[in-house]
Amino acid sequence: MIAKAIDKIDAEQVAKANEGKKAPEIKVGDSVKVFVRIKEGGKERLQAFAGTVIARDNGSGNTATFTVRRISFGVGVEKVFPLNSPYIDRVEVERSARVRRAKLYFLRSRTGKKARLREA
């Protein structure tokens, strides 16, 4: 009863989030473009956040999140997105890399050519 009830709610939330679109398939090491809906003065527009997926956290269900890292004006920026957030319009996977670990936190201490990943 206990696990079932929560599973049901989570499944409903995931289904609602992905209504009419495919669930985003995001793997660690992917270079992605996340299109986020932003409301500004009553108007809605899309903003893209492009970078590398360095982590996936909090399971695979409703609570799942992924972390995208990019270098912006020479500064490393990381954003954590809920996988099923209604604010995410779509996620485009541009490249996939062959990685051997689940969390690519080692990229934080690398810059330039050293921060490259092997193509899949």
Binding site: M1, A5, I6, I9, Q13, R37
Partner: peptide, 21 residues
């Protein structure tokens, strides 16, 4: 008390909720 999870409200905000039977 059954446990906790999260839901998105009509404005798309994440809310931590407790599920009660």
């Amino acid at each position: 008390k059954i446990g906790m999870t999260q839901v998105f409200d009509d404005q798309g905000r994440r809310i931590a909720v407790t599920v009660l039977e």
